[in-house]
Design a protein around this nucleic acid. Structure first.
Lengths: 202, 202
DNA sequence: TGACGGCGTTGATCGCGATCAATGCGGGGT
DNA sequence: ACCCCGCATTGATCGCGATCAACGCCGTCA
């Protein structure tokens, strides 16, 4: 078990690279993405402290992991992991539980990507992020979004312009305030929940 | 352990219902879906024999499972499952492995939903289905699609009209043939792969 | 046998989100 | 101080996919 740290926008693991380690994020934030040959990109999720990286993969990583902000991690060589899991069944259960949670979140994301309108997508994104911030003991109302508009767009299947316009719509409706582009104040959580129309797995 | 069977379009488990059993599909096909209050629906996946139902959930089912065609399953009460997993570590590993595969597939689906065009979506859907049919020892070239256009639309985040037009486009380009709406003959697999632009987890 | 209803396809039109473009703002470097 | 450059926002326009609508086909049932 070794520790690792990455700076903002640095790549930690690359899609297709052999899966040698599993990581736990201890601080910061990562984004996981898949890219198409022509440059289109889909962000499949953001990792916050306590989340794992590389759990579901087999053979090689199926996603690229980059730091959104400077981050620290613990790295476990996959060989050691197997031994560890045998010696500590509780660890094995924990990893399995985290994988199942990741799957429930991915299913939520399928719903968001496939069937919500841009404003609904953004509303559900903000609520999910607020819930996850609260879970990590971070402020959940003046909410800090460390990622760029481009990242949000690539997560929600939109363009940055549409993301920006959706922020403006929520602001105009009085549902949120945006003192700074990265700081979201949820003015009316109930309204936001009504707009999102969906309850996501925290 | 008991067995169960459902007829076409019959609901097996409903979103929100307490999770009392885990199932394995032994024959037929299921669709898993999430619904919004206003009726919008997202199909998150199709289950083929060998797949499990309810693995990722905790407390209650997060998705509705319906039969696409008449199907048979084995049902395991979750209580027994825990005991079984302790007595048969191989079973536990198998369930974990299936969950991880389901997660990789869900991530692929996020990419498809968020960033592909309708024709690309359909191409990748057909390739994935062909691969899974082959895995199950079913014919993978004159490919049988047991689900309706509505199901395909709700899986790909499109309308039935757009799905139908995308079929027509692939047909016009000579990539597939459609002797019947439910039978797809892949005339040029390489071209289809080029259109899809993505390699999905089988 | 004819009427009906479900399903898939095709056509016509609309409107939302993508695209193209310009502007503003703030931070960093020389 | 100045000039960039990256990022977010806003405006103008385009075009793709949704929507509205009609039709054909093939079951089932009386």
């Amino acid at each position: 078990m070794t520790s690792a740290s990455v700076e903002a926008n640095q790549i930690l693991v690359d899609e297709g690279e052999p899966r040698r380690r599993v990581y736990t994020l201890t601080s910061g934030m990562l984004r996981l993405s898949i890219a198409l040959p022509d440059g289109r990109r889909q962000i499949t999720g953001f990792l916050v402290p306590g989340d794992y990286l590389g759990l579901a993969d087999e053979g090689e990583y199926s996603q690229t992991a980059e730091a959104v902000v400077a981050s620290k991690l613990c790295a476990f060589p996959v060989r050691e992991m197997e031994g560890l899991q045998d010696r500590f069944p509780r660890l094995k259960d924990r990893l399995h539980r985290m994988t199942r949670l990741a799957l429930r979140r991915a299913r939520d994301s399928q719903m968001v990507l496939g069937r919500l309108t841009p404003v609904e997508k953004l509303a559900s994104f903000l609520l999910m992020f607020s819930a996850r911030a609260a879970e990590n003991g971070l402020p959940d109302n003046p909410l800090l979004l460390p990622m760029s508009r481009t990242d949000i767009a690539d997560y929600l299947g939109l363009t940055i312009e549409t993301v920006s316009r959706s922020f403006t719509k929520l602001k105009t409706r009085g549902v949120i305030r945006l003192p700074e582009p990265q700081i979201v104040e949820i003015a009316d959580r109930t309204a936001l929940e009504g707009i999102s129309g969906i309850v996501l797995h925290a």
